[in-house]
Computed example of a mutant assay.
Amino acid sequence: MEIRASTILPARRRDITLHTADGLNLVGELALPEDRAPAATLVCLHPLPTAEGMMDSHVLRKAAYRLPALADVAVLRFNTRGTTSRRGTSDGTFGEGEAERFDVAAAIEFVEFEELPAPWLLGWSFGTELALKWGCDPEVVGALLLSPPLHRAGNTDLDTWAASGKPVTALVPEFDDYLRPPEARERFARIPQADVVGVDNAKHLWVGEPYVRIVLNEIVRRVNPQCYPLPTEWDGPHERDTSSLAR
């Protein structure tokens, strides 16, 4: 069977609640490999909630649907404060990327409490700003950035990651709405260890299965390279996402 946009592969999935230092409850989900321990962990930071970004934004959802089975990767998704998805609505209100520092810290703390291995931050658009501003934590291995706009995150944040020596990978669409590969390479030059990957013909939202596969492969190549490249076929049990989100 070919793996498609709506394919859900086996995993141990459970609803979780993150608790922030400022007293909020954030709804989320943890997806683990079905019958073995994970080799690495993705902490997903979703796009801008005021533009319909949430934990179910399609690339993050497909990572949770596929990577536990295909790459032995645990995938933690959650809604930042005031954000709604099928899982529910997190407490609080949108904090313009500032109050969300507590949300990022709560997710990292959860990973530590659960003893999940090798946590990487996977940010998309607004989520990359949260990763760069608030995610350079001793527990975090590195950052994977999809369509980074570099609006809220500035040079001081980039310098923090540079000083940490932690790996940073930015996947930048050729036709991004905010930051395209040439400018991204200039901006991220402040982080000597940063790897900026331009993706031909892609756009900010990574719509289309070919682009999703590129993203997931680039993620796996960094967090668990022995599982790279990902297969496009699956012969085992599976489900199908029949919701309106599937695309």
Rank of each mutant, 00 (worst) to 15 (best):
W124C: 01
A118V: 15
A107E: 05
A131Q: 05
M54H: 15
C136T: 08
T93H: 06
A246F: 10
R4N: 02
R222V: 08
T169D: 07
T41P: 04
T80W: 14
F126R: 04
W120C: 03
R185V: 11
L150E: 06
D177Q: 15
L130N: 02
L179F: 13
D241I: 06
V111A: 07
S244C: 10
T242D: 09
G198S: 07
G208Y: 02
R185T: 12
T93C: 00
N217H: 09
E114Y: 13
R180I: 08
L70R: 11
F102I: 03
G198F: 11
E233N: 15
R61G: 13
T7L: 06
S147Y: 00
R61M: 12
V212H: 07
A170E: 10
D176V: 14
A64Q: 11
A71Y: 10
L121I: 00
G198L: 10
R61A: 14
P167K: 03
F113Q: 11
L130P: 03
E100L: 04
T128D: 01
G208V: 11
D72Q: 13
E209H: 00
D241F: 00
G123M: 03
E52Q: 14
L45Q: 12
A105H: 09
E96H: 04
R213Q: 12
G236E: 13
I16L: 10
E218N: 06
E209C: 00
R86L: 08
K62Q: 14
V223P: 05
V212P: 00
D103L: 12
L42N: 08
R180F: 01
G95Y: 14
S6E: 13
M54E: 07
V43T: 13
K166F: 02
L158N: 06
G165V: 11
W120P: 02
W124H: 07
Y65S: 07
R222M: 06
C44A: 15
L9M: 04
E129R: 00
D22Q: 06
W206P: 03
A143M: 01
F94Q: 08
E183D: 13
E98A: 01
V73T: 15
S147M: 04
E109I: 06
V215R: 02
V73Q: 09
A162L: 10
E114A: 10
P229I: 14
P149Q: 12
G198V: 10
F175D: 15
V59F: 04
T128R: 05
E233F: 14
P237E: 15
N155I: 09
A163M: 12
E29F: 00
L158R: 15
Y178N: 13
Q193L: 13
V223D: 08
D159M: 11
Q226L: 14
L32K: 06
S125K: 02
L179K: 14
E129G: 01
G123C: 07
R66A: 06
R36I: 03
P47N: 12
P68E: 12
R190G: 01
D176C: 13
T20H: 01
T17D: 02
F113W: 11
L9F: 01
G127P: 01
T93I: 05
A163N: 13
R81V: 04
A107N: 10
H204W: 04
T17F: 11
C227A: 15
T80R: 11
V199A: 07
S6G: 12
A105D: 14
P33R: 06
R190F: 04
D241H: 00
F126M: 03
L121F: 03
P237C: 09
V223C: 10
E233T: 15
H238V: 01
